[in-house]
Design a binder for these strands. Sequence first.
DNA 1: CTGAAAGCGCTAACAT
DNA 2: ATGTTAGCGCTTTCAG
Lengths: 329, 329
Amino acid sequence: MANIQQVAEEAGVSVATVSRVLNKQKNVTEKTKALVEEAIKKLNYEPNMLGRNLRNSETRLLLIIIPNISNPFYLEIIKGIESTVISQKYHILLCETDSNPDRENIYFDLVKNRMADGIISMDPAINGESLVNLSQKYAIIQCSEYIIGSDIPYVTIDNEEAAYRAVKHLIKIGHKRIALMNSDERFLYARQRKLGYQRALEENGIAINDNYIFQTNRLGFEYGQQIMKKILNLPDRPTAVFAVSDLLAIGALKEVNSKGLHIPNDIAIVGFDKIDFSNMTHPALTTIAQPMYKMGVIAANMLINKIKGEKVESMILDHELVIRGSTSG
Amino acid sequence: MANIQQVAEEAGVSVATVSRVLNKQKNVTEKTKALVEEAIKKLNYEPNMLGRNLRNSETRLLLIIIPNISNPFYLEIIKGIESTVISQKYHILLCETDSNPDRENIYFDLVKNRMADGIISMDPAINGESLVNLSQKYAIIQCSEYIIGSDIPYVTIDNEEAAYRAVKHLIKIGHKRIALMNSDERFLYARQRKLGYQRALEENGIAINDNYIFQTNRLGFEYGQQIMKKILNLPDRPTAVFAVSDLLAIGALKEVNSKGLHIPNDIAIVGFDKIDFSNMTHPALTTIAQPMYKMGVIAANMLINKIKGEKVESMILDHELVIRGSTSG
DNA sequence: CTGAAAGCGCTAACAT
DNA sequence: ATGTTAGCGCTTTCAG
């Protein structure tokens, strides 16, 4: 495989000139440029990025850290990231931690070893201390989940307010016994959404019943099903459920359907994220729409700017309550 | 940031010795090894992969090319790939083509530019000619979809047989008017599954009705819904539908539900892939289970062996018909 | 506008 | 067992 040296010889110029042509620099006469391009074509030359990477100390690779690739919420964000970075000649390395610290460390090492130019972290289970340390030397952005008080820039939504609106909607249509299907309260978004849930109840004079609050440390249909089983067996059975993820909500919905109960008449359900699936259930799921694609685009731009050394500001984006069949028959 | 040179000085040894310690080579005394490790710790040294990559001409990065990240079918395969390659210190670069040749070319260039050591392609819309050309010089494996007659190794299932079994199941439970919801027939798997559909009908003395055969060039719920609308309007309405993807089947199922028809009494539906969500629909979807995770593991091992220069053989894995509520009440 | 040459950080062949 | 050194392919400074 040809290298820049051979191209230079073939074209009868120096390697510096070839490099200039390759990098589209101006101060090359059309004539020599043509010469070089001819040589490139003749030799089927393809520049070797390994040399360039070492010289420029960059890889134009960005790490995207997520807990689990199976959650469509992240995929939509990733689409936004990918479409943004590709136009700037960056590529992404998808890193699924599975909430496993060992994996996390492997990915952190990738940055320390200069194999990636920056990180967008979306993993709520990430080791905050490590991440903050890393952010002293490397470009890091957080997306969706973030570390309060760190100066790692982030893009997210107002989780507390979104949860508040979701639960308020349930109250407005007459529900009083409302269960919360939460994620692990070690995660910021889980704590924030719980606060929103509590505020909605309190503002409407509904006492908070701890028996109605459930936690799972993983997201997935099966966990929603499991929790719903417990909810259905509760003595004073709730008439509505607010789940902090569409995945949980969809599992819950399946469980209610299987038991032959009617949604929303027997049980109303609200989810969170507005993943594509949420419109395919029977009935369709009422949910909070997050601007996932847009979050991805913004996170990507923030990271690229950060890599360039610019100062970047955190952002909080809008969300929207989407009312569908699972709360209104 | 420290480099190997500085570590060598700090430890009072040569860079070669440091390199030996780094790469865990044997011929270093415990004493010097300790010396080097101390220096590494003291300087917070992290090896720079860019130097190593150039020297070794490898990146330990593998390209995974898929049409669309939103199809859980691919995600399950990717999990298999990732878990396999990570233990061998490889990482994956997820490349979504969106069936766009421009994107495809960007990813091909990544390999030509030595930014990746090999490719696992799962994109049925990929440019076969380019891929075959590329495979002359670079390590390439195909997964699920493959190019007949090329010598690019692949791992897949017997699509024709799988479709045959799916349709035969429908016939066995009494259906005669069976629609096919196919993907684009430019794709091999689509042609193969159509053959299976036709064979099942023919073997059972059912005439093939071209009005019952539909195509979509993209997979997604919405396409399944659209086609189902057409099917429901057919003069001699089919009593069953075989969809070549769970995504299409789920969209179809949603459409039938919305119209107030009963599944499986009015319309039975069979999907393909057994994605997680296929068990969350109402009723759950009868489908063909593909061993996705296993396919990923095998594809990954094939690619790594290919990179090592070993000879690798194509494989055809087993599938399974999973009967659930959408065909049997 | 073009060329010569240094050097990015690492590994490995060769020498001791 | 350890050191010396060349060189992977590229970009860029400096000189002309």
